[in-house]
């Protein structure tokens, strides 16, 4: 990280701090997973280094799968930091409720397509929320924060991934979440086909029934 001069704190998240910096003339984001004092040092180190190693791998594979992600410049495991491209644009979370209905629909379908592309390649994002998606000025949606992701081709993992997307929509966009989620599934199905989408929808329902105190669950 010694090559990165002049850092300004962009965002202090729950898990990591994001710094804006200049790296060899490029505008970069340095994501540093800060040690968590609440958990034992050994466990903390294990979790942070695991996520620091796996996140760039997944970001790279996502790109290969056709999902826009930031370029990775450098990974520093002992410091648990990742230096990556700064993506210009706006978080989907901030603009989704503000744009006209047709644009909303378009964005959700696009998001669904991208999730479909990830799943088609056996990639699980692990934290699909609208704050982890950035709309660039040229209209591309970037997926960021693969820290909780994994490589998994099982229907179960894909179902949980989409279930989390649904939950995120319900908690942050509760007025329109149904419309949004429908759009996401529509985009998903354009990549994976309606049969696979129906299967995954069934899976999501099953996962939700497994949760505690869900109305739909059989007694």
């Amino acid at each position: 990280m010694d090559t990165v001069a002049e850092q300004t704190l962009l965002k202090k998240g729950a898990e990591a701090s994001l710094y804006l910096a200049d790296w060899h003339g490029r505008k970069v984001v340095v994501k540093v997973r800060i040690p968590k004092k609440y958990r034992p040092a050994a466990l903390d180190e294990q979790i942070r280094s695991y996520r620091t190693v796996h996140e760039p791998q997944l970001i790279h594979e996502a790109k290969a799968a056709g999902v826009p992600t930031p370029l990775i410049y450098m990974v520093n495991v002992p410091e648990a930091s990742i230096t990556m491209e700064y993506v210009e644009g706006q978080q989907i979370k901030q603009l989704l409720n503000k744009v006209p209905q047709q644009k909303r629909q378009e964005l959700c379908v696009k998001i669904g397509e991208l999730i479909g592309k990830l799943h088609r390649q056996g990639l699980i994002h692990g934290d699909l929320t609208t704050s982890n998606m950035i709309l660039s000025p040229e209209g591309k949606i970037y997926f960021v924060d693969f820290g909780l992701g994994e490589k998994n081709i099982e229907l179960e993992a894909q179902g949980v991934d989409l279930h989390l997307m649904k939950r995120a929509l319900q908690s942050t966009h509760y007025q329109f979440w149904e419309e949004y989620f429908k759009g996401v599934l529509c985009g998903y199905s354009s990549i994976l086909g309606s049969e696979a989408t129906e299967k995954i929808y069934e899976k999501i329902m099953e996962i939700e029934r497994r949760g505690r105190y869900v109305e739909e669950r059989k007694q």
């Binding site: 034992p40 466990l43 294990q46 979790i47 692990g126 934290d127 989390l164 939950r167 995120a168």
Partner: peptide
Amino acid sequence: NLVSLPYVVKGMD
């Protein structure tokens, strides 16, 4: 001694 055990956080769940 901290024994290695599964640590499973999925998104917010």
